[in-house]
Design a protein around this nucleic acid. Structure first.
Lengths: 239, 239
DNA sequence: CCTTCCCTGTGATGTTCGTCACGCGCAGTC
DNA sequence: GACTGCGCGTGACGAACATCACAGGGAAGG
């Protein structure tokens, strides 16, 4: 059956077969059954704004498939991409739990399936199902650790090259594919967006990437980046 | 009764009267009773290392009184102070929950009382007491939000003056005292440590503070800083 | 096929800030 | 009192990077 955006839609968490290994979703049958009664499944096109920084929390979004970027912006219009969320992540949990405004904005980068849970339902769910609460705590822990990594990268890097090298290596760990040419990364972000991930400008990203290419550290083919000399990249970062 | 370091020691959580308002500690009587059976109370002098970045998690520390700095360091010896923890905070929770290495180091800035809970006990505690689990989730949410603020400050600030202005305003919110002269801050950190909080050097901090003094925005008296012109500081930051 | 728009590449220029260097003042300590 | 260590203040210099400006290329769409 054809579905919008060619997504493999799962309307039912109980019957969902990709739950295993996903921190949040991998819970007991009874808890999943409860989850099914309070969640609203939706398909969102690319570029959908799920929530905006500063908004009062309506609830959480569970990313079933697709990807979403979490951003924070200054009044001057400068934007920082805090993280690119992958399937299995719960978005907006901290704000929802605390009842404080969302601390970031979330926007889909691809057509994505999300489960939305209203705030009251979510809090009640956590209070009545210890395993859901534990899994949420794990999700939050992971998010906190990833935020710490970001802080390290922003605060301890001496140069922008170092930040970019760090980013490439991060990507090679999370989504790299080993080939004969070196690790292959599929980068669907523009230089502008990469710049926003490491707190610099578009031009600087272009220049550093050119520099890496000149030094035969990387090779760019369309939206693929091949890491030819991972050692060189590792040598550029401190820890 | 005189106690070491002039600390008001509380050996017993059940009878502790400062629990109210502390996200984690403010829990039901039964849960507190359980907490009392698994926790180890200790007094730590200034400069104690509770845990070190990269170490495997032994368990969590609940900060009863005193303050502790959370830091992360690069191999080059550069250090970044991620946060100064206040009483009521739980330290090391994310690493303990995930079973991954501590992502920061924790060191007391003053003589402090801490409750330590071993990892297994803590996990079991959370799994059997929903309210403890919820409170942990809240703690993690707060930490995540504060990490986000740090990321914003590091990534979106255009200049170092902006970061320093932001830091001063943050302090004025959390621990400022209003006086006729302006908001009074008691700063027990050296310029070096302030530099480590905003990812810059000692000299730059000295220079910017001198600059602020020259512009009559602040006044320094010993370890007190008076914010004379909070408006000017607010004008320097973007959001 | 031509136009438009967005992304990438690159040069010129100026500012900010890190680095090195040194002096000063103020506690402890012997 | 002299010595020592540590935190603060400040000058000089250079490197890294933001900013501005413009040109080329590829994709989409009429």
């Amino acid at each position: 059956m054809p579905t919008p955006y060619n997504l493999d839609v799962r309307n039912n968490c109980t019957e969902c077969n990709v739950r295993e290994g996903r921190t949040f979703c991998d819970m007991s049958d009874e808890t999943v059954a409860m989850l099914d009664t309070i969640k609203f499944t939706g398909i969102y096109p690319k570029g959908s704004l799920l929530f905006v920084e500063g908004e009062d929390p309506r609830g959480v979004f569970i990313l079933c498939s697709g990807r979403a970027k979490l951003t924070t912006s200054s009044t001057e219009g400068k934007t920082l991409i805090v993280k690119v969320a992958e399937p299995g992540e719960v978005l907006g949990a901290s704000a929802t739990i605390l009842g404080k405004p969302y601390e970031v904005s979330a926007e889909t980068l691809e057509p994505s399936q999300m489960n939305f849970i209203k705030r009251d339902d979510f809090l009640n769910f956590l209070n009545t199902h210890v395993d859901a609460c534990m899994h949420t705590a794990q999700q939050l822990s992971t998010k906190y650790q990833s935020a710490q990594r970001e802080i390290r990268s922003l605060g301890l890097s001496q140069t922008t090259s170092e930040k970019l090298a760090r980013l490439l290596l991060d990507w090679s760990v999370s989504g790299g594919e080993e080939t004969a040419r070196g690790t292959r990364l599929v980068v669907l972000l523009t230089h502008e967006e990469i710049a926003q991930m490491i707190g610099t400008t578009r031009e600087t990203v272009t220049r550093i990437l050119s520099d890496f290419k000149k030094k035969k550290i990387i090779e760019v083919k369309g939206s693929n980046i091949f890491l030819l000399e991972k050692k060189s990249l590792e040598g550029m970062i401190s820890t």
